[in-house]
Amino acid sequence: MLTTGEHPLRATYLTLLDLFAINDPALDEPLGRQILQLLSGLVGLLLLPVLLAAVLEGLGTFRSGTALRKPPRGLSDHVVLLGLGKIGTRVLARLRELHIPVVCVEADPEARGLALARRLRVPVVLGDVTQEGVLEAAKIHRAHALLALTSADTTNLEASLYARSVRPDLRVVLRLYDDDFATAVYRTLRATHPHALTRSRSVSHLAAPAFAGAMMGRQILGAIPVERRVLLFAALDVAGHPHLEGRTVAEAFRAGAWRVLALDSASPEERRPGPATAPAPGSPERPSGLVWDLPPTYVLGSEDRVVIAATRRGLAELLGRRPRDRTGA
């Protein structure tokens, strides 16, 4: 505007054209105008990378809001979770509820648990855990524990063995399908690394009591996994069970098979289908009537109902030897 005497708006317009290098060369213009055009074009070249960097930074910030996080450089004392399927997703949600730091490793970029990991801002390493460098990217050498929860037994075992080679004292929990295989792996790892904490769990073995309880109805009150075994709690009518009927509480006990825990003191007509069932709607509230401190000399009668703790084999023996009724049912 000072050198050419143009109107301020037109001078601004010409300057912007020079900055973006889209103006005509000022060949027939005064010397001051030509110098300003050269300076404006040089400034425009310098501003172009700055503008491009600003645009890319904005796009990168948008992507990072929906992208998977990478493990921080100084992360330590965390849990490495392998597999984000059904079980892995539930375990991840529970660990975050407990505010435990987690790094996930998943080979499938479409796994169902990735959405949860992204929402919880949990670091995820995408890759095959059996490939070199994947567990290192998850900072396995500084981890507190390893949870191998993929659906492939061989993958879980291979990852656990490699993690133990990196850190022998690492805590490891393995998900294995076959119970016999899980038992063999557990004993082998325990013998190889006696100072480390090792657990191998068979999903079918842990789920079996729930299915068995559902099939047997209200007779099964609950099931508790104890190391490699499952402890069942059941309500049984003493009548028809020769191992219980007419015997004292001490005589009815069989080590490693079953044990009488409590007696339902309610009369037969007032008993609920199961001691743990809720009363029917509209019925008066009654106490459970369970007597837990039974004397060893108490004789179990045919009209009694007891709560027992038993192994699967012990309960099967109790139920399998029950005599049939007259109809043969």
Rank of each mutant, 00 (worst) to 15 (best):
V173M: 07
A235G: 10
A152V: 12
F233P: 00
H193I: 05
R167G: 08
R164T: 14
T183N: 11
A223C: 07
A234F: 00
L176C: 06
P209H: 03
A163R: 03
H205D: 12
A152P: 02
T192Y: 02
R171A: 13
A239N: 05
T154A: 15
D237N: 02
A212P: 03
R171V: 08
S202H: 01
L232S: 00
L197I: 07
T183S: 14
P209M: 04
P225I: 03
P194K: 10
S204Y: 13
R229V: 08
D180C: 04
R201C: 15
S200V: 15
L161M: 13
L161R: 10
H205I: 04
H205F: 13
L197E: 14
P194V: 11
I220M: 09
T155F: 13
T154D: 15
L236G: 03
G222V: 03
S165L: 13
S165P: 01
H193Q: 13
R229M: 08
R229N: 13
L170G: 13
R218T: 13
H193T: 07
V172G: 06
L231Q: 05
P168N: 11
Y177T: 12
Y186W: 08
V185T: 15
D153M: 12
H193K: 07
S160C: 06
R175K: 09
A207M: 05
A182M: 01
R187E: 14
M215Y: 13
S200H: 05
A234Q: 01
I224F: 11
A223L: 00
G222R: 09
Y162K: 07
T155R: 09
H195W: 03
A212C: 02
T198L: 11
V230K: 04
G217A: 09
A152W: 14
Q219K: 09
I220D: 12
V238Q: 05
D153G: 07
